[in-house]
Design a protein around this nucleic acid. Structure first.
Lengths: 137, 137
DNA sequence: CTAGGTGCAAAATATTTGCACTGGT
DNA sequence: ACCAGTGCAAATATTTTGCACCTAG
């Protein structure tokens, strides 16, 4: 348990949000007095946190996005292509569907990933008014 | 409409399967007398086929995977982490769920992607017997 | 002390782009 | 001839790795 890992873990679990490796790197330097954590260390630590079951990883437009896993209920996401935000939702139907499918296809399910793409409320109206900025975070 | 595009489109639509840019490039050379199609051309053509609505693209483990779209019913996939195969399935429940969610969240849905991960029948038994090879292609 | 962790630089992977050339119409 | 399409090489973007050094336990 080094200082770098402590910094990373602290920031990661400060609030429940979605982030990628770059977000993490950009957020860290200003908040730590010990200088910034190097890119390889961030990637290596993320792998370990995922393996340890503390984070969940998903691929979004070619990049790896992470969110809390440990202690969080299973859920899926609405993804807004306007502001690139992820909105969480839960669905028991989906879990049941998964069970049925597993049985029908003799498939041993280990997990799933559902992303529903579209425009969130804000981006629907923003698009009408003005050219919205496509900035992230 | 050039010879390269004709070759590409011919191969892509010869059978309904899932492939990535590399698969396509490897499959083409032996079958065409006109030499192989260059990598940039493959990528450029794939983009156009997706834009034209002929192919669907999905991100799987960081790589772009394509499948037929035009004329094919909407469906989702079971993904076997053993043999890396994609098994298609249809679900009307899912479509209904999507509608309900869209309404509840005031979200304008444009599409979705569901991938259920696990082990297919073969890989379940193979795993018990012997250490299966995780070779690709 | 010593094993695991870190940072730098470089490699690996996947995809995209600048640009001059070429082939289809 | 013209213009879209092509190939090469190089650029991008993201993530991974080799390796020498450092530090927590």
């Amino acid at each position: 348990m080094t200082q770098q890992r402590r910094d990373l873990v602290d920031h990661v679990f400060q609030q429940h949000d979605h982030f990628d490796a770059d977000d993490l790197i950009e957020r860290l330097p200003p908040k730590t007095e010990s200088g910034c954590v190097s890119r390889p260390t961030v990637y290596r630590t993320l792998v370990e946190l995922v393996d340890a079951g503390l984070l969940r990883k998903m691929d979004l437009e070619g990049r790896a996005v992470y969110e809390h896993d440990y202690g969080y209920p299973q859920h899926d996401h609405l993804y807004c292509t306007g502001c690139h935000s992820l909105i969480e939702f839960r669905s028991d139907e989906l879990v049941n569907m998964r069970k049925t499918l597993a049985k029908n296809h003799d498939f041993r399910v280990t997990g799933h990933r559902l992303i529903i793409t579209g425009l969130c409320r804000n981006c629907q109206t923003a698009r009408r008014r003005t050219r919205r900025r496509v900035d992230m975070i």
